[in-house]
């Protein structure tokens, strides 16, 4: 057992927002895009453990001036947190994450072993001829 296991597992925040995501699968990779406005690269944790991908973006509330009055509020700020179970043929080996303008892009490479392979099917000439003979003989 790895004793570091527990310390590596990020704590689940008590309250959080589920960031909206787009997930696209291509022949080579899985591309996950998540909106996490307000998260800086230092505040973002992307972990994979036992086939579960975890996104955790920490957003610390800014200190507000005491005299401030809220006129209109259409969004709240707080941590972002969301988990995804990765399909078996995608592993943590080939994963990379980038953050730009509050959007996280995670690319997970497909395992080489599980990539579809085309298996050529050959029909032996002799076999083909025999079939034709069978048909004509009927």
């Amino acid at each position: 057992m790895n004793t570091n296991e527990t310390s590596r597992t990020p704590a689940v925040p008590e309250e959080y927002f589920l960031p909206p995501v787009d997930v696209m699968e291509t022949a080579d990779e899985l591309v996950l895009t998540a909106d996490m406005p307000g998260v800086s690269p230092e505040q973002l944790d992307v972990t994979v453990e036992e086939g579960v991908l975890t996104l955790h973006g920490r957003v610390s509330a800014e200190e507000e001036p005491a005299s401030r009055k809220t006129v209109q509020r259409e969004f709240l700020t707080g941590d972002y947190y969301r988990q995804f179970r990765l399909p078996r043929d995608f592993s943590a080996e080939g994963i990379n994450a980038s953050l730009k303008s509050g959007v996280v892009t995670i690319r997970i490479a497909r395992d080489e072993r599980s990539k579809p392979r085309r298996i050529p099917v050959q029909v032996e000439p002799a076999e083909a001829e025999r079939r034709i003979e069978d048909k004509s003989g009927r």
Binding site: V12, E15, Y16, F17, L18, P20, D35, F75, L76
Partner: peptide, 14 residues
């Protein structure tokens, strides 16, 4: 799979 959080809010643009 998880301990239910106190509050989880789906937040989308849609």
């Amino acid at each position: 799979t998880l301990v239910a959080p106190r509050l989880a809010v789906a937040r989308g643009l849609v």
